[in-house]
C-alpha cells in the first residue's frame, strides 16, 4: 500500500527537510519500519527498542489516533494519510 506520511518539524531534517514523504506498508508498523529504512536518522524516535510505539509521538491514520485503533497493527490502505506529531505534555511540578 502506498501512503503519504506527514512529518513533524522535528523529524524533517532526517528526510532532507521534506514535510511529506511517500512510503509503503500494510500496517502502521510496516510504514514506520519503511520510514526508518529510508531515513535512518528517525531510528529510535518512532519505535522503541522493544518494538513499541514511542510514547513521545502520536501517529494518526487520516483522523484517527492509532493508539485507539490497533497501534502498530493498525491497517493502512492505498491513499491513506499517516500523520506523525510529537506528544505534547508537561507540568508545573
Amino acid at each position: 500500500m502506498a501512503v503519504e506520511v506527514r512529518l513533524p518539524n522535528i523529524l524533517r531534517p532526517h528526510a532532507g527537510g521534506q514535510a511529506t514523504v511517500s512510503t509503503v506498508g500494510s500496517t502502521i508498523g510496516e510504514v514506520l519500519k519503511a520510514l526508518v529504512a529510508e531515513y535512518p536518522g528517525m531510528a529510535g524516535q518512532l519505535v522503541t527498542e522493544t518494538g513499541e510505539m514511542h510514547k513521545f509521538v502520536n501517529v494518526y491514520v487520516n483522523d484517527d489516533d492509532v493508539r485507539y485503533l490497533d497501534k502498530l497493527d493498525t491497517k493502512v490502505t492505498d491513499g491513506d494519510t499517516v500523520s506523525i506529531l510529537p506528544a505534547v505534555a508537561g507540568g508545573g511540578f
Binding site: 502520536n58 506529531l85 506528544a87
Partner: peptide
C-alpha cells in the same frame, strides 16, 4: 487529557486538527 493541576497532556486529536 491529564485532567490535573500538576501536569498536562495536549489532546492529540486536537493537535492534529490544529496542525
Amino acid at each position: 487529557l491529564a485532567h490535573s493541576a500538576r501536569i498536562y497532556t495536549v489532546d492529540p486529536r486536537a493537535y492534529l486538527a490544529a496542525d
